[in-house]
Design a protein around this nucleic acid. Structure first.
Lengths: 233, 233
DNA sequence: CCGTATCCGGGGGGATACTG
DNA sequence: CAGTATCCCCCCGGATACGG
């Protein structure tokens, strides 16, 4: 993909030489979503090896899509930021995602669940404005089919923003949510609602009743959740 | 690319599994542009082997993007048509092309010239309404750097539409155009104009003076020619 | 925390020839 | 015209371990 080119002057082909190599579109999605640090990017593309991630970032840098900026010396910390050209890839990634939401069947999508990735996405889109204006902790207990449930704590703090932990931070928990991975993923993708999941017995919630009642609103959804799926099942 | 998946529920990743395999985006461009027959598609992706083209078409069919319709039996002729899902990929391909036009440098693009492909594209976008309402023939003599020039005849007929020949059809020629490949490609891409090319001595035109004077209008440009390039050289 | 180095296997896809 | 069939190389990228 990268070495040999299409040998076409058409701008679609020239752009496809950049976008067409494996992982690049998914990586760009994570960059467009706002991750800038190497290990943050890794959390967004967890199945990509660090070697390949590094290679792709170098390629994108060379192609003028990404800029690598030194943020701190000793130890050296870099930020990978989208350039102007990279910013303009957002409409491309959005168009890809909109199409995927509308036309990719949900069954194969929901076979690719991943609690870490889901929580990483949810953390980013949490609507803090829909929560009480104080520091609070929400614990997610996510059951994977037959596997022991995984625990995550989301800490929303008006000062520090939103944080995600996979080990107990020790704070008092304001809200507990127990749900299976498939259901919470479907909610995130806009295929299911909190109300229906509670009604159907797939989601259990207890703790602060006001926060609980407003979950559908403070839980930010995927950027593509608003697109209607054209193919069901 | 095709076998192993990204294992992400994100619609961007799910769509990327379809769009990310080699040649697929370029092939979709040709399908979106209107080609439906196997050999027409080949003209749009001339460096793709027929085996791979066939394979990709099967994949797209399986993914619900393309429908294969029998048009005629004996001999069997098929049309590859975009489904509704495929039609909705047009915004994606357009977004890719717009980005490519704006952000891919022109120098590498113009290294990928191909007279057959260029004429194939130009034939499709010829603005017959800008030509006299009668059958006429325009001969392109395209010089490739140091190589013998190649001849093409475009026949525009109010009844039969626009046709492209690479062997002399024998009709009287209404207009002769002599130009080097790089220049005519740049014109097609909107990087150069007919007037400037004539002025600069790269394009020679003779024959019907009215048709000649209107060339910039009847010669349809690339769908992306209207986008301004952000990077020059 | 932020990557690099190295190994290695599988298969994608390029090239070419051929058929109904 | 509309594809198949076949061969085979190369390199992509997955995995793992290691350095600054």
């Amino acid at each position: 993909m990268t070495t040999s080119t299409y040998h076409q002057f058409c701008p679609v082909a020239m752009a496809a030489e950049i976008l067409g190599s494996r992982w690049t579109i998914v990586l760009l999605r994570e960059l467009c979503a706002g991750s800038t640090r190497f290990n943050d990017l890794r959390r967004g593309v967890p199945r990509m090896s660090p070697a390949l991630l590094s290679k792709r970032l170098k390629e994108l840098e060379e192609q003028g899509v990404v800029a690598r900026c030194l943020v701190q010396k000793r130890p050296q910390i870099y930020d990978y930021c989208l350039t102007k050209a990279g910013e303009e890839l957002k409409p491309v990634i959005m168009a890809v995602g909109v199409w995927g939401q509308r036309w990719v069947e949900t069954t194969p999508s929901l076979k690719n669940t991943d609690p870490n990735l889901l929580m990483w996405d949810m953390r980013r889109n949490l609507q803090a404005a829909e929560l009480p204006n104080r520091k609070l902790t929400i614990q997610f207990m996510i059951g994977e089919d037959k596997l022991p449930q995984k625990n995550y704590w989301i800490i929303s703090d008006p000062k520090d923003g939103v944080d995600l932990c996979s080990v107990d931070p020790g704070f008092d928990v304001d809200l507990y949510i127990k749900v299976d991975l498939r259901t919470i993923t479907a909610i995130w993708m806009g295929l299911e609602t909190v109300a229906r999941a509670i009604e159907g017995g797939q989601l259990f919630i207890h703790g602060d009743v006001d926060i609980a009642a407003n979950m559908q609103n403070w839980l930010g959804l995927s950027p593509f959740a608003c697109e209607n799926k054209q193919i069901v099942n």
